[in-house]
């Protein structure tokens, strides 16, 4: 391609056209803060871990049920969730550490996406956990109310609460998609493009 050869010839000479940055300017630059997506992903992910973990402290800590079995199930789930949180934080740390700007482009992109995925799975796990806990509590309450002939009222309350939980999860999810949509749009697009080359 004739034009490409022309461009290549010109490209070799292009060096003279750049305004050279001085050593003093470089010194200044390296003390400035990075605005890379990895930094943002790290900050947002840490916030997500903190928020999700502190949610359980905000919940009323009173006895949920008189039934010892329900209490037992709830506390097992509670301890289980702490273990899982620690596990996810370890995975997150490991994935985050594997992000290296000196890897090849594809590997770098995969490491960033994997770090994100860890946090996403943690969030999905938490949503499922809340769901399971709610079912246990509702089922227990339902049994008690049913015995007191308040079954219809109880079903109505359950449905109402389910609706609100779904609404809150929906809003949070949308917000979440928006943040990561903006942050990872370019990366995702380039990753797809890079993967297509090797298909």
């Amino acid at each position: 391609m004739k034009e490409l050869d022309l461009l290549k010839k010109d490209w070799q000479k292009i060096d003279n056209s750049f305004v050279q940055v001085s050593e003093t300017e470089i010194y200044k630059m390296i003390h400035k803060k990075s605005s890379s997506i990895v930094k943002w992903i790290f900050i947002i992910s840490i916030l997500e871990f903190i928020v999700l973990n502190s949610l359980s402290y905000l919940m009323p800590n009173e006895k949920i049920s008189d039934s010892t079995i329900v209490e037992l199930v709830i506390s097992i789930l509670d301890y289980f969730s702490y273990g899982v949180a620690l596990f996810f934080m370890y995975l997150f740390y490991r994935n985050y550490r594997s992000i290296s700007v000196t890897s090849n482009t594809k590997k770098l992109m995969e490491c960033i996406l994997n770090t994100r995925k860890t946090v996403r799975y943690y969030i999905i796990f938490n949503i499922l956990l809340v769901f399971v806990m709610s079912i246990v509590v509702f089922f227990n309450e339902f049994q008690i109310e049913y015995a007191n002939n308040n079954g219809a009222k109880m079903i109505f309350i359950c449905l109402l609460m389910l609706f609100f939980i779904a609404l809150i999860i929906g809003v949070v999810w949308l917000f979440y998609q928006l943040i990561y949509g903006i942050l990872l749009k370019k990366l995702n697009r380039n990753y797809v493009e890079l993967k297509k080359i090797d298909l």
């Binding site: 890379s36 997506i37 990895v38 943002w40 700007v101 000196t102 890897s103 482009t105 770098l108 380039n190």
Partner: peptide, 12 residues
């Protein structure tokens, strides 16, 4: 490598 990776992946 670092410069290309920054331009393609890290730069927002």
């Amino acid at each position: 490598r670092v410069a290309l990776n920054t331009a393609i992946t890290l730069y927002r």
